[in-house]
């Protein structure tokens, strides 16, 4: 099955390059665009350290979402936390020898798939059943859930129903990383799983998945409450000032 191997080999290289390029492009764009005014949502921290803690709480605990809606928080947090565990568990396919802490994550990681499934399913149900959320949902919102559910479900099938040749898969992946290409195992479920992952990597830089880098650049969350003490001036505003006076 040289064709299959070729497709996925090229696919992974292309998707990785695109993901890195696309994300860097966006991050550089966010970085370069000035925030002309101080607009932290108050009460806000008075120090940079405080802001770092605020962002950590947002990233780790979803603090604002918790304030907003306990159900969305529960399902959303469950999905993201489980996704993290599952991804950490997958590091075993990228490392040789497998790092010891990844071994420790393994038992949790395998069950995380079910939590992802539950979280995604519940979020999708909300999209269909809650009138307000149905109103704001578009095709891309449903497709994104379908994509993530597809990845999760195919992964769970390989783990619990029709096991794939994990040794051959690892050789394929390590081969990709070392530019020493190995055949990809011919397993339709695996092909679906990896194919959807390539799709996810591809859409990441131009979809709502940009919420991940976006949070760190959100002025209402990342600004220090110090407007009176420190003069904040955007580059274009400084030029305006220089012209005007």
């Amino acid at each position: 099955m040289a064709v299959l191997t070729a497709i996925f080999t090229v696919g992974f290289y292309a998707a990785t390059a695109w993901l890195i390029y696309g994300l860097l492009r966006k991050i550089v764009q966010y970085w370069r665009t000035p925030a002309p005014l101080k607009i932290p949502t108050m009460p806000a921290p008075l120090t940079r350290g405080g802001v770092a803690m605020r962002l950590v709480r947002e990233v780790v605990l979803f603090e604002s979402l918790f304030k907003s809606n306990k159900w969305i928080w529960l399902f959303g947090w469950m999905f993201h936390a489980a996704l993290l565990l599952a991804m950490l568990r997958h590091l075993r396919y990228f490392t040789e020898p497998v790092w010891s802490w990844v071994v420790l994550v393994q038992p949790f990681g395998t069950y995380a798939g079910f939590a992802m499934l539950a979280g995604l399913g519940a979020l999708w149900l909300r999209r269909v059943l809650v009138e307000r959320i149905r109103y704001i949902s578009g095709p891309s919102d449903h497709l994104m859930l379908a994509l993530l559910l597809g990845i999760t479900a195919s992964g769970l099938v390989m783990r619990y129903v029709a096991r794939t040749d994990i040794v051959a898969l690892k050789q394929f992946i390590i081969g990709l990383m070392r530019f020493d290409w190995q055949p990809m195992p011919t397993d339709p479920v695996l092909a679906v799983h990896l194919g959807l992952v390539i799709v996810l990597m591809t859409v990441f830089p131009f979809s709502k998945l940009l919420h991940a880098p976006g949070l760190f650049f959100s002025p209402t969350r990342n600004q220090v409450d110090s407007a009176r003490e420190k003069r904040h001036l955007a580059s274009w505003a400084a030029k305006l000032e220089a012209r005007g006076e």
Binding site: P34, A35, K208
Partner: peptide, 24 residues
């Protein structure tokens, strides 16, 4: 405006339509 305001750019990109704001 997109070039002048980071908030505008980031906020137009980042919404996932989670619905947290819908009743606020």
């Amino acid at each position: 405006l997109l070039d002048k305001s980071r908030a505008l750019r980031v906020y137009l990109d980042s919404c996932v339509r989670c619905g947290a704001c819908t009743d606020k």
